[in-house]
């Protein structure tokens, strides 16, 4: 079963929920893997240390145009849907802007003069680490300055394979990186907080997850800090509230230092254990 832990708003506690869920599952001896899909800002490794086994690099192909062979017909420019080709025929100038390129291959297909060759560009890395008794941590991490993390996320998810439980710690937002992650999950846990920002962004993520036709439930983090508007909305929409995590300054302090509340506090261990059971039951129903 593949479970994505996601949210529209950043900083609601996706990594907090993912790492604790994974830890609880590992303690129970479940065959599981936690995949850090927030490749722009991966944070799982700040909380869970595995034994690094393998690092693979992820590349994309970027076209290079040879101006000596180019006939300046402009067909590649016309075929590019991303404005990645700078084409000034009157100045006999043509150039690919690698940052805008999506590696679709349309320009190579368009070129009849054999002027385009493709060269690999490093996007990021996928790291495998062993954890516990046969469990695994996988991290996708893009290089700083790379426009899209999607190829790195896709590879990380592919590497996670098919274990009994596969957790995806999702990137924030509702755009490509979020969709690339959530679309591969069987069940989505949306993490939010009881504030106007939390509610507004939850509504957007719910709309996105519904478009993808994924079953989902909601975890409210920092309960007690805000108001009850989010609870009324969940009830109105008949969305299951899976868990409320109360705001606790001491727990926030432990977590800030990279500690896992489940590992040091039995009530948190029980809370995440219950959440895990609820999620697994969703597969059965």
């Amino acid at each position: 079963m593949k479970i994505a832990i996601a949210s529209g708003k950043g900083g609601t506690g996706k990594t907090f929920v993912s790492t604790n869920l994974f830890w609880v599952a590992s303690q129970k001896g479940i065959d599981c893997v936690l995949t850090d899909c927030d490749a722009e800002e991966p944070n799982v490794a700040e909380f869970l240390a595995g034994e690094e086994e393998q690092v693979e690099e992820v590349y994309q192909q970027v076209p290079v145009i040879d101006p000596k062979k180019c006939t300046f017909c402009g067909k590649c420019y016309e075929y590019c849907s991303y404005n990645a080709i700078l084409y000034l025929p009157e100045r006999r100038m043509i150039q690919v802007q690698p940052d805008l390129c999506h590696d679709c291959g349309a320009c190579s297909y368009a070129c009849q003069a054999g002027a385009i060759t493709e060269h690999p560009k490093l996007l990021g890395r996928v790291t495998h680490a062993a954890y516990g008794i046969g469990q695994q941590l996988i991290e996708g991490r893009v290089e700083v300055g790379i426009y899209t993390p999607v190829p790195v996320i896709t590879r990380a998810i592919h590497e996670a394979g098919n274990r009994e439980l596969v957790f995806f710690d999702s990137p924030p937002g509702i755009s490509c990186p979020f969709i690339a992650t959530v679309d591969r999950a069987d069940y989505v846990v949306l993490v939010s907080e009881p504030t106007p920002f939390g509610l507004h962004d939850l509504q957007l993520s719910v709309a996105t997850v519904r478009k993808l036709s994924k079953p989902f439930g909601v975890v409210i983090n920092r309960a007690g800090l805000g108001d009850d508007a989010i609870y009324r909305w969940l009830e109105q929409e008949s969305i299951p509230l899976l868990l409320e995590i109360p705001f606790d300054r001491e727990i926030a302090r432990i977590y800030a230092e990279g500690g896992l509340p489940s590992a040091v506090n039995s009530s948190y261990r029980e809370m995440f254990s219950r959440l895990l059971t609820q999620i697994i039951q969703k597969r059965v129903s």
């Binding site: 950043g10 900083g11 927030d38 722009e40 800002e41 790379i146 426009y147 990137p171 755009s175 990186p177």
Partner: peptide, 8 residues
């Protein structure tokens, strides 16, 4: 948030 296309 992030370091990707939106942040850039």
């Amino acid at each position: 948030p992030g370091t990707g296309c939106s942040a850039i």
